[in-house]
């Protein structure tokens, strides 16, 4: 108990405590008033949902069965405060039956894998992850196969869908 309160009555002490409490509550309110909106503002991008979009890539005839082809394309995407033409790369692999579309982002930490045609493998330059030509992880650190994008063939054109 503070010394200067010793000779005062209990009402005075509780009044002092009460005022201290109110100051504390106001201060907590002030902190909340700035920290709450601040966190919401900074975390706003968490609420953005991506939509999938179909993109026409190329003529079906330009890829032969057994072939793996690197395809670059660009899309107009919203990147924060501006719309940009963003470039993307995918690998198309055609087997006898169908065409699959493999995303080049390594499933380990997102470096871009290269296709080594002589070995029929995708190899990640960062940590040495190896995937077969269907994107299945074969060795190194990657925990799962390369991501695939849905493919459809309409009127001789190959389309893929991707989330942006």
């Amino acid at each position: 108990m503070p010394k200067d309160n010793l000779n005062q009555d209990n009402i005075e002490i509780s009044r002092r405590k009460m005022m201290g409490l109110v100051v504390g509550v106001i201060n907590l309110g002030l902190i909340g008033a700035i920290v709450g909106p601040m966190v919401g503002f900074a975390a706003a991008p968490l609420g953005n949902k991506r939509k999938s979009r179909w993109v026409e890539l190329m003529d079906e005839s330009r890829i032969k069965p057994g072939e793996v082809k690197e395809v670059n394309y660009s899309l107009l995407v919203v990147d924060g405060y501006h719309e940009v033409e963003q470039k993307f790369t995918v690998f198309l692999r055609r087997s006898e039956e169908d065409v699959i579309c493999i995303d080049p982002a390594c499933t380990h930490l997102g470096c871009r894998v290269d296709y080594h045609a002589d070995q029929h493998k995708f190899i990640c330059p960062c940590h040495g992850g190896v995937f077969d030509d269907e994107g299945t992880n074969k060795s190194g650190p990657p925990p799962k196969p390369l991501e695939r994008h849905p493919v459809k063939i309409e009127a001789g054109k190959i389309w893929i869908s991707r989330e942006v």
Binding site: R53, E56, V68, Y73, Y115, H116, D118
Partner: peptide
């Protein structure tokens, strides 16, 4: 080494597609 097999970046630079 792989360049004979991969037509490197045979880019089909598509125009931007709207939705």
């Amino acid at each position: 080494a792989g360049s004979s097999d991969i037509p490197k970046a045979e880019a089909t630079q598509l125009e931007s597609l709207g939705e």
